[in-house]
């Protein structure tokens, strides 16, 4: 009886001490972790909507966020869209920026992905994939293309697929098109 009590006592003690320690540590690190997260998103917003000094959250869902980007005079430059969708291997997290009239895409960034290294993971590569996403016409949908005579033939709403990683490329296009549709609705509805 005594030993059982002792057993419970020791285990409780260990648990209490460790939870106390953890609580203190959590409080200590929390602001840093939040700051990191925020900094990451802000950095991305500034990249995809060039010229942004200040940003404001318009929509904040788990897998879909819209930020409005303003310049130093407080003038609306455009919207940064944060969206998550299914890739070839796992979820892909994307941030892209569009102008305030929703006619042009400034830039696209891939924040998180777990595609096949060397193949699908090239969706993060500036020279192979991301360069096609600059200044795209988004009045319609973005189309994945592979023109026979090379990149020069791409139209202003077309992006080139990565050779060997068609599925990952297509996933990005699908995710973006879906997000574009929502952004247009959301902005129209105010």
């Amino acid at each position: 009886m005594k030993s059982r009590f002792y057993m419970i006592f020791v285990l409780t003690l260990v648990a209490v001490i460790s939870s106390g320690l953890l609580a203190y540590f959590a409080v200590y690190t929390q602001p840093y972790i939040e700051k990191n997260k925020k900094a990451e998103i802000e950095k991305a917003i500034k990249e995809v909507v060039p010229g942004t000094i200040e940003s404001k959250v318009l929509k904040d869902e788990n897998k879909f966020k819209i930020f409005a980007g303003y310049d130093k005079d407080g003038k609306l430059l455009g919207y940064a869209v944060y969206t998550v969708g299914t890739g070839f291997q796992d979820l892909i997290t994307i941030m892209f920026g569009v102008d305030k009239h929703l006619e042009k895409m400034y830039r696209l960034e891939v924040l998180e992905q777990k595609e096949t290294p060397g193949l699908g993971a090239k969706i993060t590569d500036e020279n192979i994939f991301l360069k096609f996403w600059k200044n795209k016409n988004i009045r319609g949908e973005i189309i994945l293309a592979k023109p026979p005579k090379g990149e020069s033939e791409l139209k202003d709403n077309e992006v080139n697929a990565i050779s060997g990683a068609t599925i990952s490329s297509r996933s990005v296009v699908t995710i973006v098109n879906k997000a574009l549709k929502r952004v247009k609705e959301e902005v129209k509805n105010g």
């Binding site: 057993m7 020791v10 285990l11 260990v14 460790s18 953890l22 959590a26 690190t29 840093y32 972790i33």
Partner: peptide, 24 residues
């Protein structure tokens, strides 16, 4: 009787600390 449980609690504490520290 409770040694493994205690070890795990101790280890988990340090692991969580390490995890939070890296994240921060």
């Amino acid at each position: 009787q409770v040694r493994i449980a205690s070890y795990i609690v101790v280890i988990a504490t340090f692991v969580t600390m390490a995890d939070r520290y890296l994240a921060a």
